[in-house]
Design a protein around this nucleic acid. Structure first.
Lengths: 244, 244
DNA sequence: CAGTGGTCTAGACCACTGT
DNA sequence: CAGTGGTCTAGACCACTGT
């Protein structure tokens, strides 16, 4: 069927907003006008408008014409998942040093988190992440085999795994992040350049696709004087996340 | 018109998921079945299901029956701000022991965060928060005077400050949360029941109103074996936060 | 008041999933 | 194959907004 009409409509309206053809504070066409302009019924028009409202581009409400609030859509999901992207957004230079990548049977805890059967393989890797050449975070990641396979051949010192997986068509749809604090272990201390026992911010993450299939389990440990996690949330909108 | 049908439907399905009537991993009724059960057309059913998918409660896709992914309800903003609300949502009993409340001139760092003029007063309080009667978090909060005044007369051992302020008509619109790890200081150690130097999860929070006026600065320290912070975000939806 | 978005009905065809 | 969700049409009534 090709591209759905509601997506075409949303793309067209986003383009008008981004190009400034409709400026911030100006009114968008009403739903009825859009129906006439694109010779369609209200369904696709409302679906497109809902997407723009969700992105925070458009405001308004019952009885009121929709107003352009902003020209740049938030990309909260991408920036939440990708260390590389967050660093770039905050003006820092990201870096990484792969410590290890392996295809193996993960231990019982990880296997349970990923809903693996006994005997299933997974791809596990340990990478040190840098900000402006300073050790900032140590990541221990596990991917289910079919997702992680391409990583075995990739140059993981080159860039973002999130970007790499997205290019491979992997559907990363949602993630649950749990934050707490831990004492640095021997490996943490060595690679992050702190004493054993030093407090570290720990983020454990479970990522799954649209169908609810778990794809990734990750444990990241941040050196708190170099990197923190910041979340901005509003009553109406979605959260946006950066790390500095 | 009262409550819209699609909202009633979403609430009903959320209740079935939360109560465990439909467990995690189990299938929800198909859209057609829901139409028959509630004697409605597909519009409201699809709208309700879209809300649940957006909240990350439900997965599935074209051709597949919808699956329950999670039982945690999504009240992102409220649950992000209120320890009390988060505890209730996760089935724990929240508690608190006020240590101190004062009207004073805050130190320079806090004054700067709140955009106070020299000589301005603020209301500061220190409270120990409990989960199921165990020390879980120590909060150090500072409110601008006009917001904090009502707290001086309130029973702060009774419940949620967030709820109390909301009842007073305070417009808590957005917040920025920064997470890192710190070593427990003398007061942390004493009240949370850990050794000095023990790793604690620290959350610093700045809250402002719709007009952009800063209302609150807070620093919370979590005992990591009792309480963690969990954030669930989806590509389409807003984040939802719980603490356990 | 006319115009607007919010909600809902009752259909239809399609691509995708699992058996 | 039957069942499923994704998409779309063409109507309708309502509450709300601004003039």
């Amino acid at each position: 069927m090709g591209t759905p009409l509601h997506r075409t409509l949303a793309d067209e309206l986003r383009a008008r907003i981004r190009s400034g053809a409709i400026g911030i504070g100006e009114l968008l066409p009403s739903e009825a006008e859009l129906c006439r302009e694109f010779a369609t019924s209200r369904g696709p028009v409302r679906q497109a408008m809902a997407a723009l409202r969700d992105e925070g581009l458009v405001g308004g409400g019952q009885g009121r014409r929709p107003v352009v609030l902003d020209a740049v859509p938030a990309q909260p999901f991408e920036s939440f998942l990708s260390f590389t992207r967050r660093a770039e957004l905050t003006g820092h230079v990201p870096g990484q040093r792969l410590q290890e990548i392996a295809l193996r049977h993960p231990d019982a805890t990880v296997a349970a988190a990923l809903h693996l059967e006994p005997g299933d393989f997974a791809v596990q890797l340990v990478r040190l992440r840098l900000l402006d050449d300073r050790p900032a975070m140590l990541e221990r990641m596990t991917y289910i085999e079919k997702v992680g396979r391409p990583l075995l051949d990739a140059d993981l010192d080159a860039g973002s795994i999130y970007a790499l997986l997205t290019e491979h068509g992997v559907d990363l749809h949602a993630a649950r992040h749990t934050f707490d604090a831990v004492a640095a272990d021997q490996l943490d201390a060595e690679l992050l350049g702190v004493d054993v026992g030093h407090p570290l911010l720990r983020e454990r993450r479970l990522t799954w696709n649209t169908a609810g299939e778990v794809l990734e389990w990750s444990e990241d440990r941040y050196r708190p004087d170099v990197a923190t996690v910041t979340i901005t949330n509003t009553r109406g909108g979605r959260g946006a996340v950066t790390r500095e």
